[in-house]
Design a protein around this nucleic acid. Structure first.
Lengths: 334, 334
DNA sequence: ATGAAAGCGCTAACAA
DNA sequence: TTGTTAGCGCTTTCAT
């Protein structure tokens, strides 16, 4: 498949390469009608398609952004990705998605790869492990937006859930429904993830405000494969929790596997609320009460912040953290 | 952020650009130790990163492939995407994912965009609507692999499930469990999708082999929003189906929403099997019997076919359809 | 209203 | 063992 270039089109329409280039970039101002149609025809005739790589090299812009998610297995990540892609599509931008697996090394590798590919900016769920790298990106004014988590050491526009409120909504609802012994289970791979910290923090604070003593045995931050043992232990305490807040979708699923296996009835034996609105929440038996994140809105915001920055419309000077409201969706599990 | 080029590195290490290029491409054969370390140091010192765009322009290869899925909402699509990304990662290739929404127009647009971006090949879930385009791609020897569906008009390596067998597994299992009035519900957007045709075909054939008469009222191919009405109708027939095969994950979820809403008990009032192993199958109440597709294997195969073709290792001359085995996973819903 | 020419950052003959 | 040179396909002054 010999590549057809602008030069071929130029030859076929008896104009110079620059004129064709003008045409391609829709600068018709000073262009004769005849030239225009001749170019048009030549393009169709030859089946010419502009080479974006060459254009990118010249223009130093690829109209492509990178998205690095922490863990693609979370529903939330995929929802955010779709929102970002939607917005990018509106702006005629493209997206390269990478999954850092919550590993700072991989994160670094992907950032470098994306830069080598000359992406115009990056939206990232930061692991928190590459402070230096992010500082230098910021230093160089490289367009960057954080999603889901922020890094206090790095002042970059960050789109996050109001995680404290998310926990509070759940705890308050549990208490409303008469539950007092309330636990929380979150997943843990990395220390110092703002998301988890805030969710657990919000949980503690909500309990305090309700004048319920905090029982450290009810607070678990574990790998998924440890959930089964942990739940077995928790539920065999003399005063086992009556209700559990699942910190995210994967935690919720792990809990559901356990309750099914052990024939624990929800909410009779154990009430449940999950953060993240999982696909099956509405038709699970029993229906699952969840705290939904406005994932689409958040992805949209992140994309807009980044694209505006790329197109020099700045505006991100004042704010640094864009916090979104969680929403409690009541169903039978609580 | 002034870009640092190979020329800067060359200057700092007192060699020519080509020598630096040799170094970058690990052609150390004829390179003096001193030169090598000087270049190494200059690179580190300057924080040089090769510009992949420039390299791609020169080499006429972007080490990037495109993946166009029919509908990103299907679990199967996301599983396949992950597999493809995994394999690409091993080969140092990158991936651009597009969602054609089962719309031939969008499909065409994405193919053209990916070609403009100079991807080295495409894996696609074809809508079936762009025969001409695919023929011309094949004509031009552009690396192409079909996934999930094939087009009899276009001889391109195709990775598919043995869809007839998938239905047969389900029907036979229903019959084993004593069900005779068995329905099938699939989603429909496009006509002539090989996947749906084969699933319905396999269902019919399996019934015939079991000497069960085929009732056309039990066979529905509909948009998701029509499922509720269709089910209401079906279940109010004088002889309503006792069991339903859901043609894919979205169909299954629609059915589950309905049964929950109408308090229809599974499997007592209605037995259920779904094609596609949904995340919640194991811990749903009741556990859902499913026919799982080996999504990871299939994605892997597609990626390998494509990458081998790109790297001229051909080998795809004989086979054109790579058919994978579905697997019945038995749980309480049937 | 259109064209000539330089150059984006890199690679690959070919020379030296 | 290393350097010179000519592009890859496009955009963009600056002439004309």
């Amino acid at each position: 498949m010999r590549t057809i270039t602008i030069a071929d089109v130029a030859k076929h329409s008896n104009v110079s390469k620059s004129t064709v280039s003008q045409y391609l970039n829709k600068r018709y101002e000073y262009m004769g009608e005849g030239t225009k149609t001749r170019i048009e025809e030549a393009i169709k005739l030859l089946g010419y398609r502009p080479n974006i790589v060459a254009r990118s090299l010249k223009q130093k812009s690829t109209t492509t952004i990178g998205v690095i998610v922490a863990n693609i297995l979370h529903t939330f990540s995929t929802q955010v990705i779709r929102a970002i892609e939607d917005i990018c599509h509106d702006y005629d931008f493209h997206t390269i998605v990478c999954n850092a697996d919550d590993d700072p090394e991989k994160e670094k590798k992907y950032i470098e790869m994306l830069q080598a590919k000359q992406v115009d900016g990056i939206i990232i769920f930061p692991t928190g492990g590459n402070v230096e790298l992010f500082l230098s990106l910021k230093e160089n004014d490289f367009p960057l937006v954080f999603m889901d988590r922020y890094m206090s050491e790095v002042q970059v526009p960050s789109v996050v859930l109001d995680n404290e409120k998310a926990s509070k909504l759940a705890v308050d609802y549990f208490v409303d429904r008469g539950y007092q012994r309330i636990g929380i289970m979150t997943t843990s791979i990395l220390e110092n993830l703002t998301t988890r910290i805030k969710r657990v923090g919000g949980y503690r604070q909500a309990l305090q405000e309700q004048n319920i003593p905090i029982n450290e045995n009810y607070i678990k931050s574990l790998e998924l494969h440890q959930f089964e043992d942990a739940m077995t232990n928790m539920l065999s305490l003399k005063n086992p929790p009556q209700a559990i807040l699942a910190g995210n979708d994967l935690a919720l699923m792990e809990i559901l596997k356990f309750t099914k296996k052990k024939k624990i009835s929800i909410p009779k034996d154990l009430a449940l609320i999950g953060i993240d609105d999982v696909s099956f929440a509405s038709f699970y038996n029993p229906g699952l009460t969840t705290v939904a994140q406005p994932a689409f809105e958040m992805g949209k915001k992140a994309a807009e912040l980044l694209l505006n920055k790329i197109q020099k419309k700045e505006e991100d000077v004042h704010h640094h953290i864009y916090s979104f409201e969680p929403q409690l969706i009541k169903r039978e599990s609580c």
